[in-house]
């Protein structure tokens, strides 16, 4: 059954969209990641203009992070002051990202910006995840427990001025690093249509030294606000948020996430991570090949002032 997407200005199959939402939701539930970094490329692969894919996916992530975040809220596993500071940086980053997006869109280079960002981040994250999970798997075979990775010292960063006490994280650190991290992730969120948890979570653990029990909740907390602002900024500046598209992805996404979360609990963590790493690398390689190989059609048409 076809449905007309009023902003993407194309017809797409409803079941394909719900199915894609379900598949990515399933994986995100199973692996505990946001899934935006898989959904945006998938939307581009089925022909949604990249600019619309990014903005609509940000809208969908608001829904999935609210539903995920509520559980952490009730468990009091959110460091709210930290979340608000990350969010402040994130809002500024989202604004900058959308402005950059708008500028490059006028120059006809936004698709390139999106693709390159994805190739770089999927490549780096996929490689790191794959390496770590393979090390764990090999170590488990040998029967020797793996040493938890000892991150380097970053304490001088945390001792910058404007220090603040974060009681739930049991930290007394400068607000500058969380602001900078929030800003950086906000920019990525606006350009890539992701929540940015895959950057935020490691940054919180290894740079801010937050205890792991508040990391995911706090990350989701700030993702809600950052993706909400990305959605609104894109709607205002670029008119690229397709609510019909986002809504269909939400339906599939939330259902898939519930199933995935249940299945995920029964599977081994490091094998899951290796599998996810392969998927991430696969998507990254596909995007890279699309950039490197000569396209079948060298020309493209864009309506002045609108379109992808």
């Amino acid at each position: 059954m076809l449905i007309y997407l009023p902003i993407a200005e194309m017809s797409a199959n409803i079941m394909t969209l719900i199915g894609m939402g379900g598949l990515v939701g399933f994986m995100s539930g199973m692996f505990g990641v946001g899934g935006g970094f898989l959904m945006t490329p998938l939307l581009i692969f089925i022909g949604v203009p990249p600019a619309v894919a990014v903005a609509s996916e940000a809208n969908q992530i608001v829904a999935s992070s609210v539903s995920g975040g509520l559980a952490y809220w009730q468990r009091r596993a959110i460091d709210i002051p930290m979340g608000l500071i990350l969010m402040s940086g994130g809002l500024a980053g989202a604004y900058s990202g959308v402005q950059l997006f708008k500028l490059l869109r006028a120059m006809g280079q936004v698709d390139l910006l999106i693709s390159l960002s994805y190739v770089v981040f999927l490549g780096v994250i996929g490689t790191l995840m794959l390496r770590e999970s393979i090390q764990v798997i090999i170590a488990a075979r040998k029967g020797s427990p793996v040493q938890a990775r000892r991150p380097g010292q970053h304490s001088w960063i945390l001792r910058l001025p404007f220090r603040m006490r974060f009681r739930r994280s049991k930290l007394y650190i400068s607000v500058i690093p969380p602001l900078v991290i929030g800003y950086f992730v906000g920019v990525l969120s606006a350009i890539m249509g992701v929540g940015g948890g895959f950057i935020m979570v490691p940054a919180m653990i290894y740079i801010l030294r937050m205890p792991t029990n508040v990391v995911i909740g706090t990350s989701l907390f700030q993702i809600i606000f950052v993706t909400a602002s990305v959605t609104i900024f894109h709607a205002v500046e670029n008119q690229t948020v397709d609510i019909v598209l986002a809504g269909l992805l939400m339906i599939g996404g939330v259902l898939g996430a519930q199933l995935g979360a249940r299945l995920g609990q029964r599977l081994r963590g490091e094998q899951l991570r290796a599998l996810l790493a392969l998927i991430v690398l696969g998507v990254g390689v596909k995007l890279l090949l699309d950039l490197v190989n000569q396209p079948d059609e060298l020309f493209s048409l864009t309506r002045m002032g609108v379109g992808g």
Partner: peptide, 12 residues
């Protein structure tokens, strides 16, 4: 944009 966010928050 606000409507899009509201739909998402409600759905989530």
């Amino acid at each position: 944009g606000i409507f899009g966010v509201a739909v998402a928050v409600f759905m989530g």
